[in-house]
């Protein structure tokens, strides 16, 4: 038990280190490379439009007249304390400007994150009951096809089929950014489905492979010979073992869902953080880009930590390995 706790503490510390590195990367990406933020926005053939006074003024406005170390300390302090400053254009608090889109995306992503492993488990178990059978073949083929489809294609196909042909969902999400959560949830059906398609496909394949392997293993065979019913073999013995690789896949899915959210929100015009990120990049709103990037990285680190802890809880072999060290 001590070893497991030590592992969790180590992971927390490691997450802190990663967060520092992420802050540094965000800083470098948005303010330093290549040269500085000003150079990044001014290609060489455009420099003819700028006088020295222009450049000096713009550098001062962007705070680029301070040293890189000084600027990093400022940016880092702001990021880790969740004080993201104010927007360049409207001078409003960054967190105020992104809080509603952030919550909306969290609602959509949370549903997708919960739904994806559930659907994957159902399909994976179903297919693994008779490997090579018709159901397995159909589901495996469909998921392989779905996995190969880019998110924006899935989104557009869903709009055409479910909104335009069948009229089951709105084609244009007519909802305000600050709408209550239940309204956001109500319009999230298609975006969530589109978001889960690739995740389900990937996690299904991991789970199915794990299930097939587990169901063919010696311990399952022994249990089967001792008269344990087949459904119990599948649910209580094979599934937990097969879940471990799938959970790693779920953690990856959470990391990937952030880029998926950007694409899906753009397709559906969902009032979320992805749209906000695109807008702030196009407006060169560096503080907003920094805030969203940092929060996204934070979410990935947190989800990986959660996945590690879940694996520890589910898989006695991992716990034993830790304790044996």
């Amino acid at each position: 038990m001590y070893a497991v706790l030590a592992l969790i503490v180590r992971r927390l510390l490691l997450s802190g280190v990663i967060l520092v590195l992420v802050s540094g990367t965000v800083f470098i990406g948005t303010e330093i490379l290549p040269g500085d933020a000003l150079d990044a926005t001014i290609p060489a053939d455009e420099l003819m439009y700028y006088s020295d006074d222009d450049l000096a003024r713009m550098r001062a406005e962007l705070g680029l007249d301070k040293s890189a170390a000084e600027r990093f300390v400022n940016v880092f302090r702001g990021l880790v304390t969740f004080d993201f400053g104010v927007t360049l254009m409207t001078q409003e608090s960054v967190i105020d400007s992104i809080i509603h889109p952030l919550l909306n995306s969290l609602i959509m992503a949370s549903v997708a994150i919960v739904l994806t492993p559930l659907v994957s488990v159902v399909l994976g178990v179903w297919a693994a009951l008779k490997p090579g059978g018709r159901i397995d073949g159909a589901v495996s083929g469909a998921t392989l096809f779905a996995y190969s489809m880019p998110d924006f294609v899935v989104g557009n196909v869903f709009v055409i089929v479910f909104a335009i042909w069948l009229g089951l969902a709105p084609a244009v999400l007519m909802i305000t950014e600050s709408a209550p959560w239940y309204q956001i949830l109500a319009v999230s059906v298609l975006p969530v489905l589109a978001l889960t398609v690739s995740g389900v496909a990937y996690q299904f394949r991991l789970l199915r492979a794990g299930m097939v392997e587990a169901l063919g293993s010696e311990f399952i065979e022994r249990a089967r010979l001792s008269g344990v019913p087949e459904w119990r073999l599948v649910i209580t013995h094979a599934l937990p073992a097969a879940l471990v690789p799938m959970l790693n896949g779920t953690a990856q899915f959470v990391a990937g869902i952030i880029s998926g959210v950007v694409v899906i929100e753009a397709v559906f015009k969902f009032p979320g953080i992805g749209i906000e990120l695109i807008r702030s990049i196009s407006q060169r709103e560096v503080p907003t880009v920094q805030a969203i990037t940092f929060l996204a990285a934070f979410a990935v680190i947190a989800s990986n930590l959660l996945a590690d802890i879940s694996i520890l809880a589910l898989d006695p072999r991992v716990r034993r390995a830790r304790n044996d060290r």
């Binding site: 709009v159 055409i160 909104a163 335009i164 009229g167 709105p170 084609a171 244009v172 007519m174």
Partner: peptide
């Protein structure tokens, strides 16, 4: 065009 086809607009 999607919103118009779907009858939303």
């Amino acid at each position: 065009i999607n919103g118009f086809r779907a009858g939303q607009l």
